[in-house]
């Protein structure tokens, strides 16, 4: 089954997604697709916390910072995948460090295509994204582009995933499908 989990920050999306992925795997292989590319000590500390949170859950970690498709080339498609998060992956892809973090929209669109294709062909996937669309701000053009592209990926994944849920205070509000595993 394929799941899209979104919602506001610090509402329990990651923990819920990890438990879900373990349950979906039923003892089989489950991959954690790690999307964060650390740039400083604060990032490394966050990653250490995330790794500690997952300890004992049996995940195999695949670094998936930028090239989604290439990072999965040796993975077993019949396994279970947890991608946490689409938000971070798009950030890495859209803002190109080799080009002074200029917007690379074609790369973001390729990433969106790859994510949708993966959702269509893989058996068990949990995608985690972030709901960043309901504030009263006027953002600069690059931030607005990022929001628009993330929303497009969310909507494409929502279309193809079996279950779509919004997590609020650790509770899943199911918008599509039935949360049964």
């Amino acid at each position: 089954m394929t799941f899209l989990i979104s919602g506001g920050a610090k509402n329990g999306k990651s923990g819920m997604a990890q438990n879900l992925a373990v349950a979906l795997a039923r003892g089989g292989t489950h991959y954690y697709l790690a999307t964060m590319i650390p740039v400083d000590e604060e990032d490394r500390e966050r990653i250490r916390c995330h790794v500690a949170d997952r300890a004992g859950m049996g995940f195999e970690t695949i670094e998936c910072g930028r090239d989604f498709q290439a990072s999965l080339k040796d993975a077993d498609l019949s396994a279970t995948f947890l991608l946490d998060s689409v938000t971070a992956l798009l950030m890495n892809v859209l803002f190109d460090p080799a080009n002074n973090y200029a917007l690379d929209i074609p790369a973001a669109e390729r990433c969106a295509d790859q994510l949708e294709a993966f959702a269509r062909k893989a058996g068990n996937v949990v995608f985690v994204s972030d709901y960043i669309y309901s504030d009263a701000q006027r953002y600069d053009e690059s931030t607005e582009t990022y929001r628009r592209l993330l929303a497009e990926i969310d909507r494409r994944l929502a279309r193809v995933c079996d279950v779509v849920a919004e997590v609020s205070a650790g509770q899943a509000v199911v918008h599509k499908g039935a949360w049964t595993i």
Binding site: G8, S134, D135, A136
Partner: peptide
């Protein structure tokens, strides 16, 4: 559009 769920905006106009 629902604008209700962010940090209180800094600018008076945005608030």
């Amino acid at each position: 559009q629902d604008l209700s769920s962010g940090v209180v905006p800094m600018g008076a106009e945005l608030r």
